[in-house]
Design a protein around this nucleic acid. Structure first.
Lengths: 255, 255
DNA sequence: GTAATAGTGTCTCTTAGACAATATGCC
DNA sequence: GGCATATTGTCTAAGAGACACTATTAC
Protein backbone atom coordinates (compact mmCIF):
# COMPACT_ATOMS: atom_id res chain seq x y z
CA UNK A 1 0.00 0.00 0.00
CA UNK A 2 1.58 3.29 -1.05
CA UNK A 3 2.18 5.88 1.59
CA UNK A 4 0.19 9.03 1.31
CA UNK A 5 2.33 11.75 -0.26
CA UNK A 6 2.72 15.20 1.16
CA UNK A 7 2.07 18.09 -1.18
CA UNK A 8 5.78 18.68 -1.32
CA UNK A 9 6.55 15.10 -2.33
CA UNK A 10 3.87 15.31 -4.96
CA UNK A 11 5.31 18.55 -6.21
CA UNK A 12 8.79 17.10 -6.47
CA UNK A 13 7.58 13.90 -8.12
CA UNK A 14 6.03 15.80 -10.98
CA UNK A 15 8.73 18.44 -11.28
CA UNK A 16 10.11 18.68 -14.80
CA UNK A 17 13.83 19.38 -14.80
CA UNK A 18 13.75 20.57 -18.35
CA UNK A 19 10.71 22.78 -18.24
CA UNK A 20 12.87 25.82 -18.92
CA UNK A 21 15.94 26.19 -21.08
CA UNK A 22 19.14 25.94 -19.05
CA UNK A 23 22.62 27.30 -19.61
CA UNK A 24 25.56 24.96 -19.91
CA UNK A 25 27.78 24.88 -16.82
CA UNK A 26 31.53 24.46 -17.05
CA UNK A 27 34.33 24.49 -14.53
CA UNK A 28 37.66 26.02 -15.54
CA UNK A 29 40.79 25.94 -13.43
CA UNK A 30 43.67 28.38 -13.50
CA UNK A 31 46.59 26.29 -12.28
CA UNK A 32 49.68 28.18 -11.17
CA UNK A 33 53.09 26.95 -10.26
CA UNK A 34 56.57 28.44 -10.10
CA UNK A 35 59.39 26.90 -12.08
CA UNK A 36 62.72 28.28 -13.20
CA UNK A 37 62.09 31.43 -11.20
CA UNK A 38 58.94 32.18 -13.18
CA UNK A 39 55.26 32.08 -12.48
CA UNK A 40 53.66 29.55 -14.83
CA UNK A 41 50.12 28.69 -15.77
CA UNK A 42 48.90 25.43 -17.27
CA UNK A 43 47.04 25.57 -20.58
CA UNK A 44 45.70 22.85 -22.84
CA UNK A 45 45.26 22.85 -26.59
CA UNK A 46 41.66 22.41 -27.66
CA UNK A 47 40.99 19.36 -29.82
CA UNK A 48 37.44 20.33 -30.76
CA UNK A 49 35.41 23.21 -32.05
CA UNK A 50 34.86 25.93 -31.12
CA UNK A 51 38.33 27.48 -30.86
CA UNK A 52 39.86 24.23 -32.10
CA UNK A 53 43.64 24.30 -31.91
CA UNK A 54 43.74 27.28 -29.56
CA UNK A 55 45.06 27.24 -26.03
CA UNK A 56 42.59 27.30 -23.19
CA UNK A 57 42.31 26.82 -19.47
CA UNK A 58 41.79 23.22 -18.42
CA UNK A 59 38.14 22.59 -17.71
CA UNK A 60 34.95 21.06 -18.86
CA UNK A 61 31.31 20.49 -18.16
CA UNK A 62 30.14 19.60 -14.68
CA UNK A 63 29.00 15.99 -14.59
CA UNK A 64 25.52 16.04 -13.13
CA UNK A 65 24.24 12.75 -14.49
CA UNK A 66 24.66 10.12 -11.76
CA UNK A 67 24.42 7.31 -14.31
CA UNK A 68 27.05 8.66 -16.65
CA UNK A 69 30.13 6.58 -17.34
CA UNK A 70 32.20 9.76 -17.31
CA UNK A 71 31.81 10.07 -13.54
CA UNK A 72 29.64 12.18 -11.30
CA UNK A 73 30.50 15.47 -9.55
CA UNK A 74 28.67 15.99 -6.30
CA UNK A 75 29.78 19.60 -6.01
CA UNK A 76 31.38 22.31 -8.12
CA UNK A 77 34.57 22.04 -6.13
CA UNK A 78 34.66 18.28 -6.77
CA UNK A 79 34.45 19.01 -10.47
CA UNK A 80 37.36 21.44 -10.21
CA UNK A 81 39.42 18.93 -8.25
CA UNK A 82 38.68 16.27 -10.85
CA UNK A 83 39.86 18.51 -13.68
CA UNK A 84 42.95 19.44 -11.77
CA UNK A 85 43.79 15.85 -10.92
CA UNK A 86 43.30 14.73 -14.49
CA UNK A 87 45.79 17.30 -15.71
CA UNK A 88 48.42 17.33 -13.01
CA UNK A 89 48.05 14.25 -10.83
CA UNK A 90 47.83 16.51 -7.78
CA UNK A 91 45.15 15.55 -5.28
CA UNK A 92 45.28 18.22 -2.60
CA UNK A 93 46.13 21.55 -4.13
CA UNK A 94 45.41 24.96 -2.76
CA UNK A 95 42.12 25.57 -4.51
CA UNK A 96 39.98 28.65 -4.33
CA UNK A 97 36.96 29.75 -6.25
CA UNK A 98 37.82 32.75 -8.39
CA UNK A 99 34.68 34.02 -10.08
CA UNK A 100 31.84 32.89 -12.28
CA UNK A 101 31.48 34.07 -15.85
CA UNK A 102 28.20 33.69 -17.64
CA UNK A 103 26.65 35.20 -20.72
CA UNK A 104 24.86 34.40 -23.92
CA UNK A 105 27.92 35.18 -26.01
CA UNK A 106 30.98 33.70 -24.39
CA UNK A 107 30.52 30.35 -26.09
CA UNK A 108 29.00 30.20 -29.59
CA UNK A 109 27.29 26.92 -28.77
CA UNK A 110 25.09 28.00 -25.94
CA UNK A 111 24.36 30.39 -23.07
CA UNK A 112 27.26 29.28 -20.88
CA UNK A 113 28.29 29.66 -17.29
CA UNK A 114 31.86 28.98 -16.30
CA UNK A 115 32.80 28.70 -12.66
CA UNK A 116 36.49 29.51 -12.52
CA UNK A 117 38.83 28.28 -9.80
CA UNK A 118 42.41 29.05 -9.16
CA UNK A 119 44.91 26.60 -7.83
CA UNK A 120 48.45 26.81 -6.52
CA UNK A 121 50.71 23.81 -6.58
CA UNK A 122 54.33 23.20 -5.85
CA UNK A 123 56.19 22.20 -8.98
CA UNK A 124 57.71 19.20 -7.23
CA UNK A 125 54.30 17.57 -6.90
CA UNK A 126 53.29 17.74 -10.53
CA UNK A 127 53.23 14.82 -12.93
CA UNK A 128 51.81 16.14 -16.18
CA UNK A 129 49.46 13.57 -17.62
CA UNK A 130 50.30 13.63 -21.27
CA UNK A 131 47.60 12.01 -23.29
CA UNK A 132 44.67 12.50 -20.94
CA UNK A 133 41.90 13.83 -23.09
CA UNK A 134 44.31 13.34 -25.96
CA UNK A 135 45.05 17.05 -25.57
CA UNK A 136 48.42 18.70 -25.36
CA UNK A 137 49.12 20.47 -22.07
CA UNK A 138 51.91 22.98 -21.44
CA UNK A 139 53.14 25.44 -18.86
CA UNK A 140 53.24 29.05 -20.02
CA UNK A 141 55.17 31.83 -18.38
CA UNK A 142 52.98 34.54 -16.94
CA UNK A 143 53.92 38.02 -18.08
CA UNK A 144 52.14 40.95 -16.53
CA UNK A 145 48.47 39.95 -16.76
CA UNK A 146 48.57 37.11 -19.21
CA UNK A 147 50.50 34.87 -21.57
CA UNK A 148 51.86 35.45 -25.05
CA UNK A 149 49.12 33.54 -26.80
CA UNK A 150 45.55 34.01 -27.85
CA UNK A 151 43.26 32.04 -25.64
CA UNK A 152 39.91 30.45 -26.38
CA UNK A 153 36.59 31.83 -25.16
CA UNK A 154 37.00 34.62 -22.60
CA UNK A 155 39.88 32.80 -20.96
CA UNK A 156 42.15 35.77 -21.38
CA UNK A 157 39.87 37.69 -19.03
CA UNK A 158 39.66 34.83 -16.58
CA UNK A 159 43.43 34.44 -16.54
CA UNK A 160 43.93 38.17 -15.99
CA UNK A 161 41.50 38.10 -13.09
CA UNK A 162 43.29 35.12 -11.59
CA UNK A 163 46.68 36.80 -11.82
CA UNK A 164 45.29 39.98 -10.28
CA UNK A 165 43.78 38.01 -7.43
CA UNK A 166 46.97 36.03 -6.85
CA UNK A 167 49.09 39.19 -6.70
CA UNK A 168 46.63 40.87 -4.35
CA UNK A 169 46.54 37.90 -2.01
CA UNK A 170 50.29 37.55 -1.98
CA UNK A 171 50.57 41.06 -0.64
CA UNK A 172 48.72 40.42 2.54
CA UNK A 173 48.33 36.67 2.99
CA UNK A 174 50.47 33.57 3.26
CA UNK A 175 49.19 31.92 0.08
CA UNK A 176 52.65 31.89 -1.41
CA UNK A 177 53.61 28.94 0.80
CA UNK A 178 51.42 26.73 -1.38
CA UNK A 179 53.78 27.28 -4.27
CA UNK A 180 56.67 25.87 -2.25
CA UNK A 181 57.31 22.26 -1.21
CA UNK A 182 56.01 21.08 2.17
CA UNK A 183 59.20 22.20 3.89
CA UNK A 184 61.18 25.28 3.04
CA UNK A 185 63.56 27.81 4.50
CA UNK A 186 62.70 31.41 5.26
CA UNK A 187 65.06 32.55 2.54
CA UNK A 188 63.23 30.39 0.01
CA UNK A 189 59.93 31.84 1.14
CA UNK A 190 61.27 35.35 0.82
CA UNK A 191 62.55 34.61 -2.68
CA UNK A 192 59.07 33.33 -3.59
CA UNK A 193 57.49 36.56 -2.41
CA UNK A 194 60.07 38.66 -4.20
CA UNK A 195 59.45 36.77 -7.41
CA UNK A 196 55.67 37.13 -7.18
CA UNK A 197 55.69 40.75 -6.09
CA UNK A 198 58.55 41.77 -8.35
CA UNK A 199 60.13 43.61 -5.49
CA UNK A 200 63.08 43.31 -3.16
CA UNK A 201 62.20 42.71 0.47
CA UNK A 202 64.28 43.40 3.52
CA UNK A 203 65.39 40.19 5.18
CA UNK A 204 65.01 41.33 8.74
CA UNK A 205 61.64 42.95 8.28
CA UNK A 206 60.34 40.01 6.30
CA UNK A 207 61.31 37.51 8.97
CA UNK A 208 59.85 39.62 11.71
CA UNK A 209 56.50 39.86 9.97
CA UNK A 210 56.36 36.20 9.06
CA UNK A 211 57.13 35.20 12.60
CA UNK A 212 54.67 37.64 14.12
CA UNK A 213 52.00 36.41 11.73
CA UNK A 214 52.54 33.08 13.42
CA UNK A 215 51.83 30.92 10.45
CA UNK A 216 54.97 28.87 10.18
CA UNK A 217 56.30 26.21 12.46
CA UNK A 218 59.90 25.04 12.43
CA UNK A 219 60.39 21.40 11.52
CA UNK A 220 62.43 20.28 14.48
CA UNK A 221 65.88 19.02 13.73
CA UNK A 222 65.51 19.47 10.00
CA UNK A 223 67.74 21.85 8.13
CA UNK A 224 68.55 22.59 4.53
CA UNK A 225 72.22 21.60 4.12
CA UNK A 226 74.34 23.32 1.57
CA UNK A 227 77.76 24.61 0.95
CA UNK A 228 77.50 27.09 3.81
CA UNK A 229 75.59 27.55 7.01
CA UNK A 230 72.50 25.28 7.00
CA UNK A 231 69.06 26.85 7.36
CA UNK A 232 66.13 25.82 9.53
CA UNK A 233 63.27 24.22 7.63
CA UNK A 234 59.74 25.46 8.25
CA UNK A 235 56.32 24.25 7.27
CA UNK A 236 53.01 26.00 6.97
CA UNK A 237 51.04 25.81 10.22
CA UNK A 238 47.51 24.85 9.28
CA UNK A 239 45.12 26.54 11.61
CA UNK A 240 41.68 28.05 11.29
CA UNK A 241 42.43 31.61 10.23
CA UNK A 242 45.97 31.23 9.02
CA UNK A 243 45.44 32.94 5.74
CA UNK A 244 45.55 36.52 6.87
CA UNK A 245 49.02 37.71 6.87
CA UNK A 246 49.65 41.31 7.62
CA UNK A 247 46.71 42.26 9.75
CA UNK A 248 46.39 45.96 9.41
CA UNK A 249 42.90 47.12 9.84
CA UNK A 250 40.85 50.19 10.46
CA UNK A 251 39.88 48.84 13.86
CA UNK A 252 42.06 47.75 16.67
CA UNK A 253 40.25 44.99 18.45
CA UNK A 254 40.40 44.78 22.22
CA UNK A 255 42.49 41.92 23.52
CA UNK B 1 22.83 29.66 -53.26
CA UNK B 2 24.02 28.69 -49.79
CA UNK B 3 27.51 29.66 -48.79
CA UNK B 4 29.91 26.82 -48.20
CA UNK B 5 30.16 26.16 -44.48
CA UNK B 6 33.40 25.94 -42.61
CA UNK B 7 33.94 22.89 -40.41
CA UNK B 8 33.32 25.12 -37.42
CA UNK B 9 30.03 26.37 -38.76
CA UNK B 10 29.00 22.82 -39.55
CA UNK B 11 29.98 21.74 -36.06
CA UNK B 12 27.95 24.48 -34.46
CA UNK B 13 24.96 23.88 -36.68
CA UNK B 14 24.66 20.30 -35.55
CA UNK B 15 25.58 20.91 -31.94
CA UNK B 16 22.94 19.55 -29.57
CA UNK B 17 22.48 21.81 -26.55
CA UNK B 18 20.85 19.07 -24.58
CA UNK B 19 23.18 16.23 -25.35
CA UNK B 20 24.24 16.11 -21.70
CA UNK B 21 22.23 16.68 -18.56
CA UNK B 22 22.66 20.22 -17.25
CA UNK B 23 22.33 21.70 -13.79
CA UNK B 24 19.78 24.40 -13.11
CA UNK B 25 21.32 27.88 -12.76
CA UNK B 26 19.92 30.42 -10.33
CA UNK B 27 20.99 33.89 -9.30
CA UNK B 28 20.48 34.91 -5.67
CA UNK B 29 21.10 38.38 -4.32
CA UNK B 30 21.97 39.34 -0.76
CA UNK B 31 20.68 42.89 -0.51
CA UNK B 32 21.93 44.94 2.40
CA UNK B 33 20.86 48.29 3.67
CA UNK B 34 21.10 50.18 6.94
CA UNK B 35 17.97 51.46 8.63
CA UNK B 36 17.29 52.47 12.22
CA UNK B 37 20.98 52.10 13.03
CA UNK B 38 20.93 48.43 12.04
CA UNK B 39 22.28 46.40 9.17
CA UNK B 40 19.34 44.82 7.35
CA UNK B 41 19.00 42.16 4.69
CA UNK B 42 16.06 41.66 2.36
CA UNK B 43 14.33 38.27 2.37
CA UNK B 44 11.27 37.00 0.55
CA UNK B 45 8.78 34.38 1.59
CA UNK B 46 8.65 31.44 -0.78
CA UNK B 47 5.28 30.82 -2.37
CA UNK B 48 6.17 27.47 -3.90
CA UNK B 49 7.72 24.15 -3.02
CA UNK B 50 10.34 23.32 -2.03
CA UNK B 51 10.69 25.23 1.24
CA UNK B 52 7.26 26.74 0.71
CA UNK B 53 6.48 29.38 3.31
CA UNK B 54 10.12 29.77 4.39
CA UNK B 55 12.18 32.90 4.01
CA UNK B 56 14.80 32.97 1.31
CA UNK B 57 17.14 35.28 -0.52
CA UNK B 58 15.55 36.98 -3.50
CA UNK B 59 16.54 35.21 -6.67
CA UNK B 60 15.50 32.92 -9.43
CA UNK B 61 16.52 31.11 -12.56
CA UNK B 62 18.62 32.84 -15.19
CA UNK B 63 16.51 33.55 -18.26
CA UNK B 64 18.43 32.06 -21.16
CA UNK B 65 15.60 31.63 -23.63
CA UNK B 66 15.58 34.65 -25.97
CA UNK B 67 11.98 33.96 -26.96
CA UNK B 68 10.60 33.75 -23.48
CA UNK B 69 7.96 36.21 -22.37
CA UNK B 70 9.63 36.38 -18.96
CA UNK B 71 12.52 38.37 -20.43
CA UNK B 72 16.05 37.49 -21.39
CA UNK B 73 19.27 37.88 -19.39
CA UNK B 74 22.34 38.50 -21.50
CA UNK B 75 24.70 38.02 -18.57
CA UNK B 76 24.66 36.72 -15.02
CA UNK B 77 25.05 40.23 -13.71
CA UNK B 78 22.05 41.35 -15.75
CA UNK B 79 20.03 38.61 -14.10
CA UNK B 80 21.13 39.80 -10.66
CA UNK B 81 20.26 43.39 -11.53
CA UNK B 82 16.86 42.28 -12.75
CA UNK B 83 16.12 40.45 -9.51
CA UNK B 84 17.28 43.39 -7.48
CA UNK B 85 15.24 45.88 -9.44
CA UNK B 86 12.14 43.74 -9.21
CA UNK B 87 12.40 43.65 -5.44
CA UNK B 88 13.63 47.12 -4.57
CA UNK B 89 13.14 49.41 -7.55
CA UNK B 90 16.83 50.31 -7.40
CA UNK B 91 18.60 50.43 -10.75
CA UNK B 92 22.21 51.18 -9.97
CA UNK B 93 23.20 49.49 -6.75
CA UNK B 94 26.64 48.56 -5.61
CA UNK B 95 26.67 45.00 -6.87
CA UNK B 96 29.42 42.49 -6.47
CA UNK B 97 29.63 38.81 -7.18
CA UNK B 98 29.96 36.88 -3.93
CA UNK B 99 30.44 33.21 -4.68
CA UNK B 100 28.87 30.35 -6.56
CA UNK B 101 27.29 27.43 -4.79
CA UNK B 102 26.63 24.22 -6.64
CA UNK B 103 25.90 20.67 -5.65
CA UNK B 104 23.59 17.76 -6.24
CA UNK B 105 21.89 18.23 -2.87
CA UNK B 106 21.25 21.89 -2.26
CA UNK B 107 17.92 21.80 -4.08
CA UNK B 108 15.78 18.65 -3.96
CA UNK B 109 14.56 19.28 -7.49
CA UNK B 110 17.81 19.15 -9.35
CA UNK B 111 21.58 19.50 -9.40
CA UNK B 112 21.64 23.26 -8.89
CA UNK B 113 24.11 26.08 -9.23
CA UNK B 114 23.43 29.37 -7.55
CA UNK B 115 25.52 32.39 -8.40
CA UNK B 116 25.24 34.66 -5.38
CA UNK B 117 25.67 38.42 -5.53
CA UNK B 118 25.74 40.94 -2.80
CA UNK B 119 24.36 44.42 -3.09
CA UNK B 120 24.52 47.55 -0.98
CA UNK B 121 21.87 50.21 -1.28
CA UNK B 122 21.05 53.34 0.57
CA UNK B 123 17.75 53.02 2.35
CA UNK B 124 16.52 56.31 0.91
CA UNK B 125 16.53 54.85 -2.59
CA UNK B 126 14.39 51.83 -1.88
CA UNK B 127 10.77 51.41 -2.87
CA UNK B 128 9.79 47.90 -1.85
CA UNK B 129 7.63 46.42 -4.54
CA UNK B 130 4.97 44.71 -2.61
CA UNK B 131 3.15 42.26 -4.75
CA UNK B 132 5.84 41.56 -7.32
CA UNK B 133 5.97 37.81 -7.64
CA UNK B 134 3.02 37.81 -5.24
CA UNK B 135 5.62 37.12 -2.56
CA UNK B 136 6.03 38.90 0.72
CA UNK B 137 9.32 40.74 1.14
CA UNK B 138 10.76 42.03 4.40
CA UNK B 139 13.89 43.55 5.85
CA UNK B 140 15.51 41.49 8.61
CA UNK B 141 18.05 42.74 11.10
CA UNK B 142 21.44 41.11 10.76
CA UNK B 143 22.76 39.71 14.00
CA UNK B 144 26.28 38.33 14.05
CA UNK B 145 26.36 36.09 10.99
CA UNK B 146 22.70 35.72 10.15
CA UNK B 147 19.08 36.39 10.93
CA UNK B 148 16.75 34.92 13.51
CA UNK B 149 14.92 32.71 11.03
CA UNK B 150 15.40 29.45 9.25
CA UNK B 151 16.18 30.04 5.63
CA UNK B 152 15.42 27.95 2.59
CA UNK B 153 18.05 25.91 0.72
CA UNK B 154 21.60 26.72 1.84
CA UNK B 155 20.77 30.41 2.07
CA UNK B 156 21.94 30.52 5.66
CA UNK B 157 25.43 29.71 4.44
CA UNK B 158 25.24 32.21 1.61
CA UNK B 159 24.06 34.94 3.96
CA UNK B 160 26.83 34.18 6.45
CA UNK B 161 29.40 34.36 3.65
CA UNK B 162 27.96 37.68 2.50
CA UNK B 163 28.10 39.19 5.98
CA UNK B 164 31.65 37.99 6.44
CA UNK B 165 32.66 39.51 3.13
CA UNK B 166 30.92 42.78 3.90
CA UNK B 167 32.63 43.12 7.27
CA UNK B 168 36.00 42.26 5.77
CA UNK B 169 35.63 44.83 3.00
CA UNK B 170 34.47 47.52 5.35
CA UNK B 171 37.71 47.20 7.26
CA UNK B 172 39.94 48.20 4.41
CA UNK B 173 37.80 49.63 1.65
CA UNK B 174 35.34 52.44 1.07
CA UNK B 175 32.34 50.21 0.32
CA UNK B 176 30.43 51.65 3.23
CA UNK B 177 29.72 54.80 1.23
CA UNK B 178 27.27 52.81 -0.86
CA UNK B 179 25.03 52.39 2.16
CA UNK B 180 24.73 56.16 2.52
CA UNK B 181 22.85 58.61 0.33
CA UNK B 182 24.70 60.29 -2.52
CA UNK B 183 25.84 63.11 -0.27
CA UNK B 184 26.85 62.75 3.33
CA UNK B 185 28.98 64.32 6.02
CA UNK B 186 32.17 62.84 7.40
CA UNK B 187 30.48 62.29 10.72
CA UNK B 188 27.73 60.31 9.04
CA UNK B 189 30.32 58.21 7.28
CA UNK B 190 32.14 57.60 10.52
CA UNK B 191 28.90 56.53 12.20
CA UNK B 192 28.27 54.08 9.37
CA UNK B 193 31.69 52.52 9.86
CA UNK B 194 31.22 52.36 13.59
CA UNK B 195 27.89 50.65 13.16
CA UNK B 196 29.24 48.08 10.73
CA UNK B 197 32.45 47.42 12.60
CA UNK B 198 30.87 47.54 16.03
CA UNK B 199 33.69 49.72 17.24
CA UNK B 200 34.36 53.30 18.22
CA UNK B 201 36.68 55.19 15.91
CA UNK B 202 38.73 58.26 16.66
CA UNK B 203 37.39 61.27 14.81
CA UNK B 204 40.69 62.81 13.91
CA UNK B 205 42.34 59.60 12.78
CA UNK B 206 39.30 58.60 10.78
CA UNK B 207 39.20 61.88 8.90
CA UNK B 208 42.89 61.79 8.19
CA UNK B 209 42.69 58.33 6.68
CA UNK B 210 39.61 59.05 4.65
CA UNK B 211 41.18 62.17 3.21
CA UNK B 212 44.51 60.51 2.51
CA UNK B 213 42.70 57.69 0.76
CA UNK B 214 41.47 60.38 -1.57
CA UNK B 215 38.13 58.83 -2.32
CA UNK B 216 35.79 61.61 -1.33
CA UNK B 217 35.20 64.96 -2.93
CA UNK B 218 33.49 67.83 -1.17
CA UNK B 219 30.27 68.99 -2.76
CA UNK B 220 31.07 72.64 -3.16
CA UNK B 221 28.83 75.00 -1.36
CA UNK B 222 26.67 72.28 0.09
CA UNK B 223 26.42 71.71 3.79
CA UNK B 224 24.25 69.75 6.14
CA UNK B 225 22.38 72.38 8.16
CA UNK B 226 21.24 71.65 11.67
CA UNK B 227 20.86 73.14 15.04
CA UNK B 228 24.58 73.75 15.39
CA UNK B 229 27.57 74.23 13.17
CA UNK B 230 26.78 72.94 9.64
CA UNK B 231 28.96 70.21 8.15
CA UNK B 232 30.49 69.96 4.70
CA UNK B 233 28.79 67.44 2.42
CA UNK B 234 30.93 64.94 0.53
CA UNK B 235 30.30 62.48 -2.22
CA UNK B 236 32.10 59.36 -3.28
CA UNK B 237 34.68 60.13 -5.96
CA UNK B 238 34.28 57.51 -8.65
CA UNK B 239 37.65 56.71 -10.09
CA UNK B 240 39.30 53.61 -11.40
CA UNK B 241 40.85 52.11 -8.30
CA UNK B 242 38.89 53.89 -5.66
CA UNK B 243 37.86 50.84 -3.75
CA UNK B 244 41.06 50.23 -1.83
CA UNK B 245 40.98 52.18 1.28
CA UNK B 246 43.80 51.72 3.68
CA UNK B 247 46.65 50.75 1.46
CA UNK B 248 49.00 48.88 3.67
CA UNK B 249 50.95 46.31 1.87
CA UNK B 250 53.97 44.13 2.19
CA UNK B 251 55.65 46.10 -0.56
CA UNK B 252 56.31 49.74 -0.77
CA UNK B 253 56.15 50.67 -4.41
CA UNK B 254 58.55 53.20 -5.83
CA UNK B 255 56.98 56.51 -6.62
C1' DG C 1 90.95 31.57 8.85
C1' DT C 2 87.80 32.63 4.74
C1' DA C 3 83.69 32.62 2.18
C1' DA C 4 79.05 32.76 2.03
C1' DT C 5 74.83 32.38 3.75
C1' DA C 6 71.63 32.23 8.19
C1' DG C 7 69.85 34.77 11.60
C1' DT C 8 69.54 38.98 15.03
C1' DG C 9 69.83 43.79 16.90
C1' DT C 10 69.21 48.56 16.70
C1' DC C 11 68.26 53.08 14.86
C1' DT C 12 65.16 56.07 12.60
C1' DC C 13 61.19 57.52 10.32
C1' DT C 14 56.47 57.03 9.39
C1' DT C 15 51.90 56.57 10.81
C1' DA C 16 48.08 55.91 13.60
C1' DG C 17 45.71 56.73 17.86
C1' DA C 18 44.81 59.81 21.87
C1' DC C 19 43.35 63.94 23.03
C1' DA C 20 43.25 68.80 23.09
C1' DA C 21 42.36 73.10 20.81
C1' DT C 22 40.03 75.92 17.64
C1' DA C 23 36.06 77.12 14.38
C1' DT C 24 31.36 77.89 13.25
C1' DG C 25 26.49 78.53 13.27
C1' DC C 26 22.19 78.95 15.87
C1' DC C 27 19.81 80.45 19.75
C1' DG D 1 27.97 84.75 24.91
C1' DG D 2 26.72 79.70 25.40
C1' DC D 3 26.02 75.37 23.33
C1' DA D 4 26.87 71.63 20.51
C1' DT D 5 28.94 69.99 16.81
C1' DA D 6 32.66 70.46 12.92
C1' DT D 7 37.33 70.59 11.96
C1' DT D 8 42.26 70.86 12.82
C1' DG D 9 46.63 70.39 15.42
C1' DT D 10 50.00 68.13 18.32
C1' DC D 11 52.04 64.61 21.18
C1' DT D 12 53.30 59.92 21.72
C1' DA D 13 53.85 55.13 20.96
C1' DA D 14 54.02 51.23 17.90
C1' DG D 15 55.62 49.27 13.78
C1' DA D 16 58.22 48.92 9.58
C1' DG D 17 62.31 49.68 6.80
C1' DA D 18 67.34 50.32 6.60
C1' DC D 19 71.37 48.51 7.67
C1' DA D 20 74.82 46.58 10.32
C1' DC D 21 76.18 43.00 13.24
C1' DT D 22 76.76 38.18 14.91
C1' DA D 23 76.42 33.00 14.05
C1' DT D 24 77.36 28.85 11.67
C1' DT D 25 78.99 25.65 8.42
C1' DA D 26 82.18 23.85 4.58
C1' DC D 27 86.45 24.27 2.90
Amino acid sequence: MPKRQTTEQAFLAQYDRDRYAKPAVMVDVVIFTVRDERLKVLLVKRGEHPFRGQWALPGGAVHVDPDSAAGFDRTLEAAALRELYEETGVKSPYLEQLKTYGSAERDPRDWTVSVAYFALISSDRIELRHGTDAAEARWFTVQKLGVKHRLAFDHKTILADAITRLRAKVEYTAVAVHLLPEEFTLTELQHMYELLLQATLDKSAFRRRVKEANMLEPVKGKRREGQFRPAQLYRFARRADMDLFFPRSLVRYAK
